[in-house]
Design a protein around this nucleic acid. Structure first.
Length: 177
DNA sequence: TAGGCCATCTGGTCCT
DNA sequence: AGGACCAGATGGCCTA
């Protein structure tokens, strides 16, 4: 806000100016300021609206993320920070699962000679479950003490261990806490 | 009642 | 210039 000008000072106070002219100038300035104020106000209101919208979109995206995380229907909703941490660890656990699967399992016949195993996003679960019976089971070493966020904890775990997964100090590089 | 979480407002900064 | 993004402030709601 502009500080209020002292009466009789500034450009409206030139000696000899007719009083009426000064008064008109003052009214004009007041009108301009009021206009400016309403303009600023309406811009602010618009900006608030956009910001609200933006946050709603952000929250919607967060909800989508929640919906693909293996939580439990009747469980309390994950908070924002929990959702992000959980997602981070969950992704880490899934990649770890794939990595271990590649280590432990011989490639199934269907994929022998194929360029690449199925992509992680496609159907990793069915690929694992369709492994030949003689293949070693997945994978005793997966739940070692050094990897608290194992695939079993995460993907196939009962609710309780999954819940503990929210804040697990695991993952590649810098763990999220 | 304190603390955590959230939505909203706001002003600043960056980008197109 | 206007919109997007960001971070701080504030107040409401809920729970231990």
């Amino acid at each position: 806000m502009m500080p209020a000008e002292a009466p009789g000072s500034g450009e409206g106070a030139e000696p000899g100016a007719p009083r009426e002219r000064r008064r008109r100038r003052g009214r004009a300035r007041a009108r301009t300021e009021a206009l400016l104020h309403t303009l600023k106000r309406s811009r602010r209101v618009k900006a608030n609206d956009r910001e609200r919208n933006r946050m709603h979109h952000l929250n919607a995206a967060l909800d989508e993320l929640r919906s693909v995380l293996p939580t439990f229907p009747d469980d309390t909703k994950l908070t924002k920070i929990e959702t992000l941490r959980f997602a981070y660890n969950y992704i880490w656990a899934l990649s770890e699962t794939l990595r271990l699967a590649e280590q432990c399992l011989p490639p199934p016949p269907a994929f022998r000679g194929a360029a690449a195993p199925p992509s992680p996003g496609s159907d990793a679960g069915s690929w694992l479950s369709s492994a030949s019976p003689s293949a070693p089971s997945l994978c005793a070493s997966a739940s070692g003490p050094s990897s608290p966020a194992t695939s079993e904890d995460c993907v196939y775990a009962p609710a309780d261990s999954l819940r503990g997964f929210r804040g697990l100090p695991a993952g590649p590089g810098a763990p999220l806490r």
